[in-house]
Simulated scan of single mutants.
Amino acid sequence: MVLSESKDANGRSVIHDCATTALPAHFEQVAYWGTRTFLGDYYKTFGHGSENVQQSVTKALASPAQFKSTLNPGPFVVEDENYNYISARWPGDAELFAEEIIKLFESFNKIV
């Protein structure tokens, strides 16, 4: 979300041209409606009635096709090699996300 809202000198999102992922709408909705009775708006990222994270991020992209996702809850990351950019969806992706970030940094060390 932070990168989708961060703008470049032209006023476009800094991830405008990247392939990316984020919290899928389906994941957010299941958590929100499954817990709303006893947790209120806690699991809705921006509160009841707001758009979901997937919608917010997709609007910042040049094309909706750049948003990559899966409903498989197993670890999932998206790497855009053109921009040395790696994204993940939720805490279940954290270990794979960290491993991919480390590989990216290690590849830079081989160049230097």
Rank of each mutant, 00 (worst) to 15 (best):
Q54T: 04
K103Q: 10
M1R: 10
F76R: 09
I101W: 08
A60F: 01
L23Y: 00
E79I: 11
D8Q: 07
D41H: 11
S4L: 11
E106S: 09
S56I: 10
N84Q: 04
F97I: 01
D80A: 15
F67M: 15
F105A: 05
M1L: 11
Y42N: 00
S63K: 06
T20S: 10
A25T: 06
G74Q: 14
A19Q: 09
N72F: 00
A88C: 15
I101G: 02
T35L: 07
H48F: 12
G74F: 03
Y42M: 02
Q29A: 07
E51F: 02
D41T: 14
P64E: 01
S87K: 11
N82V: 08
V2D: 11
A9W: 03
F38S: 08
V77F: 13
S6F: 04
F105C: 11
I15C: 05
F97D: 02
D93W: 10
D17I: 03
C18G: 10
L71G: 12
G11C: 14
K59D: 01
L3H: 11
T70L: 13
Q54N: 05
S107R: 12
S6G: 10
G40K: 14
E81W: 06
V30S: 09
Q54L: 04
D93Y: 11
S4N: 14
D80R: 09
D80K: 14
E28Y: 00
A98N: 12
Y85W: 05
T37P: 03
V78N: 08
P73Y: 02
K44P: 01
A98W: 05
T45C: 14
V30F: 13
V14Y: 03
F108P: 02
T21I: 07
V2E: 11
G11I: 04
F108D: 12
G74Y: 02
N72Q: 08
T70Q: 12
S50T: 14
V78P: 06
F46R: 13
T35C: 09
K44W: 05
N10M: 02
T37I: 03
L61N: 03
A88W: 07
E28K: 01
I102P: 00
D41W: 05
E99K: 09
E100D: 03
A98V: 05
P24Q: 07
A98S: 08
E95L: 11
A94V: 08
E5A: 15
S63Y: 00
E79A: 15
S4E: 05
E95A: 15
E5P: 14
L23A: 05
H26M: 02
S4I: 13
T70H: 13
S4G: 15
W33C: 14
F46A: 07
H26Q: 04
G40E: 13
E51C: 06
F76V: 14
A60C: 04
N82R: 12
F97M: 12
K44S: 13
A19M: 02
L3R: 12
N10W: 07
S56E: 08
S107L: 06
S13T: 06
K59I: 00
E5N: 12
A98F: 05
V30C: 09
A62F: 04
E28Q: 01
E5G: 15
T45H: 14
N10V: 01
K44M: 12
E95H: 13
N52F: 07
E51P: 00
L39H: 10
G11S: 12
T37S: 06
E28P: 01
Y83D: 02
R89E: 09
K103T: 10
L23F: 06
